[in-house]
């Protein structure tokens, strides 16, 4: 069973993938909740435009998304140059860039799941909380947020799964540098490009299957826990 033994490079790719996907999921969560709330409850000019922009990464070819990111967030890109000069944040050819690409690709899935759950919240309960003295911010924290928790969790899991599988946008934006931007998917792709890489590709494929399965089970379990708490009348 020697061929099942993972090499250091392979471990690095796995760890990097988990890290990048985790960061992408956690960092995009507050934005995801905010945008979802805006789309579910807001009434403003340009709402459908915002909705379209959020959904773009789902529709565009990933390579196109990666290229747009490269233009905007590259070292000489409009936003990238600004962030580099003023905040010292660099995206191009760094793991941060991979996390950005993964976060953007998973964003529409996250927003969709959260938005649907916000739309399903009974606003009468929020009114009731208001009459009991809760300000709008407290109403959100103590009533809306607990009630949308199942949607938030499924949005997070979807975004994480999308990030784990993300390939096109990442490789276009930050290339395929081992130890920095080479995620699981990119590593598998690299193995298939070299003679005798089949065993490595197979090992990483098994790992990818195991991680996806674990994520799925975790989401089911969390949904069960939350669902038991929030038994809607």
């Amino acid at each position: 069973m020697d061929w099942l033994h993972l090499s250091d490079e392979e471990w690095t790719a796995i760890r990097l993938s988990l890290w990048v996907s985790g960061v992408a999921m956690v960092v995009s969560l507050p934005f995801g909740i905010f945008i979802a709330y805006l789309l579910a409850r807001g009434r403003f000019w340009g709402k459908s435009v915002l909705n379209g922009i959020v959904h773009l990464p789902l529709i565009l070819p990933p390579v196109v998304t990666g290229f747009i990111l490269l233009i905007l967030f590259g070292r000489r890109g409009v936003i990238g140059a600004f962030l580099n000069d003023h905040l010292g944040i660099v995206f191009s050819f760094r793991w941060t860039g991979a996390a950005l690409a993964c976060g953007i690709m998973g964003f529409p899935l996250m927003v969709r799941a959260i938005r649907l759950s916000i739309e399903a919240v009974d606003r009468k309960l929020e009114d009731a909380a208001g009459t009991l003295g809760a300000s709008p911010a407290w109403v959100f924290l103590t009533v809306t947020l607990p009630l949308i928790l199942p949607g938030v969790i499924s949005g997070m899991i979807l975004a994480f799964a999308k990030a784990m599988g993300e390939f096109g946008a990442t490789i276009t934006f930050v290339s395929n540098i081992p130890g920095e931007t080479q995620t699981l998917s990119a590593a598998i792709y690299t193995f298939t490009q070299v003679p005798g890489g089949d065993a490595g590709a197979m090992r990483l494929t098994l790992v990818a299957i195991a991680i996806s399965f674990a994520a799925l089970l975790a989401s089911e379990f969390l949904a069960y826990l939350v669902g038991r708490r929030v038994d809607i009348e």
Partner: peptide
Amino acid sequence: PKHRRRFGYVFQEGRLFPHLNVRQNLNYG
């Protein structure tokens, strides 16, 4: 606004918070 009036409102359908138990509902306001 409603949250600063300090008027208790009992609705026709109760409107208890489903994610809180009775004690927590009572303590909410």
